[in-house]
């Protein structure tokens, strides 16, 4: 059984209750259709169980398969530096079918980000290293595709692309 090698820390992007007994980590790729499918399930899970769960999103862009995945990950991280990671994260998944540099810039404008700062951060080595660090930590933890979930550190292999299979973890 694969285990999470990089512990959840303050540097992570989180939603839900930081003191929750259940911590769910997703390794995801913004251009992966399976992650797009899981996106509303996660939101529903948080709506229903927000007090009982902490959700963490980490980047796992497969760049050769998904040419816009890395730039989307960087755009979300760059928005995060202006306090709007989750807003950008949501909008990217909502526009998954039409991801491009232009779309991402447009989304950043819609969020009323400081565009000068955004375009600098978007290309920064620092954010690139962060995304690559997510990817490497995922690989070493046994992520073999996206989305891969970890529940309290153990890879959650019961997810089968239904909400119910995700919700199951709240009952275990």
């Amino acid at each position: 059984m694969a285990h999470l090698k990089t512990a959840v820390s303050k540097g992570d992007h989180t939603l839900g209750n930081p003191k929750a007994a259940k911590v769910l980590v997703e390794y995801g790729d913004y251009q992966c259709p399976h992650c797009g499918l899981a996106f509303p399930f996660i939101n529903r899970l948080l709506d229903n169980y927000g007090d009982e769960i902490l959700f963490v999103f980490r980047n796992f862009p497969l760049q050769e398969s998904h040419p816009a995945a890395m730039m989307a990950a960087l755009a979300a991280e760059a928005a995060g530096l202006q306090g709007k990671f989750w807003e950008m994260h949501d909008m990217i998944f909502e526009h998954q079918a039409s991801l491009s540099a232009d779309t991402l810039l447009h989304l950043a404008e819609k969020l009323q980000l400081d565009m000068q700062k955004f375009s600098q951060d978007w290309r920064s080595q620092e954010l690139m290293s962060r995304v690559e660090g997510d990817f490497e930590g995922g690989l070493r933890s046994g992520v073999n595709g996206t989305p891969t979930f970890f529940l309290n550190g153990a890879r959650y292999d019961h997810y089968n692309e239904t909400y119910e299979s995700l919700e199951q973890m709240m009952r275990d």
């Binding site: 497969l62 760049q63 050769e64 490497e136 690989l139 595709g145």
Partner: peptide
Amino acid sequence: SDQLALYNETLNM
């Protein structure tokens, strides 16, 4: 294909 696509991204490491 998924496995090899993953390794393709891991070549640097």
